[in-house]
Simulated assay, not measured.
Amino acid sequence: MTRFGYTLMTEQSPPLSLVEQARRAEAAGFDFEVSSDHYFPWLSAQGHASYAWSVLGAVAQATERVELMTYVTCPTVRYHPAVVAQKAATMGVLSQGRFTLGLGSGENLNEHVVGEGWPSVDARHEMLVEALEIIRELFGSDMVTYVGRHFRVDSARLWDRPETPVRIATAVSGPKSIERFAPLSEDLVAVEPNADFVSTWNATQGAPRIGQDARAIGQIPICWDPDRDAAVQRAHEQFRWFAGGWGVNADLPTTAGFAAATQFVRPEDVAENIPCGPDLDAIVEAVSAYWKAGFTDIALVQIGDESTGPFFDQAAEPLLAKLRDAAPGS
């Protein structure tokens, strides 16, 4: 069964709006909700970057059914992994077992703020492996001491843990990261519909199998609006950073850097890569790339602050109906 989620973009909406969007997304019938965890927006035009964990705590009380998830948290620079474990366990309790901890190796944009520098890709992956080991140990043990190359933990314990252990989903970008992270994770996270990610994960020794014990969770931006021109303009204003790809996006440190890197990206370039406007069938076609690649869960990013937008009033329910009609097993 293919499941569909809604993204709470901390970069494009204030915190109270995010909580209201979470409530409305649940009422519209979304299966799960994911939250970004940013210190900076990608572009200044987005204008927001509230603390994801406070927002998620409020969302856990404003919703009853939907699963919740970070998409994704970096547990290596801005946060120590032992603190991330505590936050995730608390969210597991507050949500009564509805929370999945999504983890990744992070972006310079959000991690540079603590002044510790930005490690190389290899170092970031080493750090994430250690963080995964620490978090998993804390989820399952009463007292943890850990000595690694990058992190130390001294006699740490999680005093409040949910009855059902928090699932860990880890972002991957290729075979090397899958080989490292899959045996330490329950679920896969990716932002491109790459079938090789799913097959490589399933072939990795010690990894849970996607489609059986594990999920493959993807994310795709859309910009629904009754006016296509308005949708294209909004997508260009707020989401042209997406054109850089993650090789660039992971390393730029400021919104000014993203603005400069994307200054020559035109509105029509954005519209070629992001479905914009009122055509629900075009959105379904774009989303279908994920389930065709073997992804089980797909989170939509509706571009723009939906506190006053028409998405939930006009588009959310019919879009979900079309997606479920088209997706396998839905």
Rank of each mutant, 00 (worst) to 15 (best):
E285L: 00
W241V: 02
F242C: 05
G309D: 03
Q238W: 06
R215V: 00
G304K: 02
G257D: 08
G304Y: 04
P275M: 09
Q212R: 15
P253V: 01
P318D: 03
L300P: 02
A214L: 00
I222T: 06
N273K: 15
G218R: 01
E317F: 04
G309W: 02
D269L: 10
G245C: 03
A207W: 05
T204L: 02
I210H: 10
D269K: 13
E237F: 06
R240W: 14
R266I: 00
F311H: 00
T254K: 13
R209T: 14
G245V: 00
A271R: 13
A282L: 13
D325G: 09
D281A: 12
E317S: 11
W291H: 01
F295R: 04
F242G: 05
N194F: 10
S288A: 03
D227R: 12
E268A: 13
E192R: 15
D229R: 14
A286D: 07
A216P: 00
W246P: 02
P193D: 01
V284R: 04
G247W: 02
L323D: 01
R324C: 01
C276S: 09
Q212C: 11
E272I: 05
K322D: 04
A299K: 00
D313L: 07
A282R: 15
A315D: 02
A203P: 12
A293E: 12
W224C: 07
Q263C: 10
A231M: 03
R266T: 11
E192H: 11
V232E: 07
E306S: 11
A286C: 07
G294Y: 01
W291P: 01
Q302N: 05
D279G: 03
F258E: 05
T204M: 05
A316G: 11
V270T: 10
P226W: 02
A326E: 02
D196A: 15
A326T: 00
D213M: 09
F264A: 15
T200L: 15
V284K: 05
R215E: 07
D325K: 11
F295C: 01
R324G: 00
V301W: 13
N194Q: 14
E317G: 06
P253S: 03
A326Y: 04
V284S: 01
F258M: 08
P275T: 09
V191N: 11
A235P: 07
F295I: 00
T200S: 14
S288W: 00
D297N: 04
A230P: 05
D229H: 12
A250M: 14
T200P: 09
R266S: 10
E192S: 14
W291M: 01
R228Q: 14
A256N: 11
A316Y: 08
P275V: 06
E192K: 14
Q263N: 11
N194C: 14
A259Y: 05
G206E: 13
I303R: 12
R240T: 10
A203Q: 15
P253N: 04
E192M: 13
Q219R: 14
Q205I: 09
V265G: 10
P221K: 12
A195H: 15
V270N: 11
T262S: 15
D325A: 14
R228A: 10
Q205F: 09
G277K: 09
R209A: 12
T204F: 04
A316K: 06
N194R: 15
F242W: 15
A286E: 07
E268M: 07
N202V: 01
A256G: 11
W224A: 06
A259N: 08
T262M: 12
D213C: 07
E306Y: 06
G245A: 03
